[in-house]
């Protein structure tokens, strides 16, 4: 555990909690892509199956349980409790365009051809692109609530911090996981355009809106 890994995890946790609180406080999930949230729930579920097979640390186990619990709580909010506020008409990204290639790739490029390992690989690849329905929704409506942009910022920051964590681990532990690193790079790059808008607009007190 190093400072980048810890702040990365906390940033991830902050993102998840910001989103839950936003929905709860405003009693609305307007502007939130339910499809991205489904993908994140699939990501956590397929990756953390090792909760059943191996114990790493109390920190590791509790964070996994919290992430999974929050992911399903978010889904419950979007598709059940606050379903009336869900903006499904704008949430039109075709997730099969992500699921099929990602599923295929996880069978082809993995560390070990075993069910749990393939599911882990699938979750890493899927996570790298799971935000696309949300970004697509924002590009379609041309705007995002400021609180939603805070959510996206922390979610993007988390994987960027993991990149520094992997550099650290490579130098000090000789550890590297090529699958996680490449997917993490892709994931971070997808946020770059958003980071630019966040810094140049949201941090200066303006609402994030895209030119028509």
């Amino acid at each position: 555990m190093n400072v980048f890994r810890l702040t990365g995890d906390l940033s991830h946790l902050a993102a998840i909690i910001i989103l839950l609180l936003k929905i709860w406080k405003t009693r609305s999930c307007a502007g939130i892509s339910g499809k991205s949230q489904i993908l994140f729930a699939v990501v956590f579920t397929s990756r953390y199956l090792d909760l059943l097979t191996s114990f790493i640390s109390l920190y590791n186990t509790s964070m996994k349980v919290i992430y999974i619990g929050c992911a399903y709580a978010t889904l419950y909010f979007v598709y059940m409790k606050f379903k009336a506020t869900y903006d499904g008409n704008h949430d039109t990204f075709r997730v099969e365009f992500l699921l099929v290639p990602v599923g295929g790739l996880s069978f082809l490029v993995n560390h070990d051809f075993s069910p749990l390992e393939i599911l882990w690989t699938f979750s890493i690849y899927l996570e790298s692109v799971a935000i696309l329905p949300q970004l697509f929704m924002i590009s379609k409506t041309g705007e995002a609530e400021t609180i939603t942009t805070h959510y996206l910022f922390f979610l993007g920051l988390y994987r960027a911090l993991y990149l520094f964590n992997w550099i650290w681990r490579f130098y000090f532990e000789g550890f590297f996981d090529m699958i996680a690193i490449v997917a993490g790079l892709v994931q971070t790059i997808l946020y770059c355009d958003f980071f630019y808008l966040y810094i140049t607009k949201v941090l200066k007190g303006k609402k994030l809106s895209l030119p028509a």
Binding site: N60, H111, D112, S114, N165
Partner: peptide, 10 residues
Amino acid sequence: EYNVYGHDEL
């Protein structure tokens, strides 16, 4: 044995 690749991260 699962976890031989040390998936100790989240």
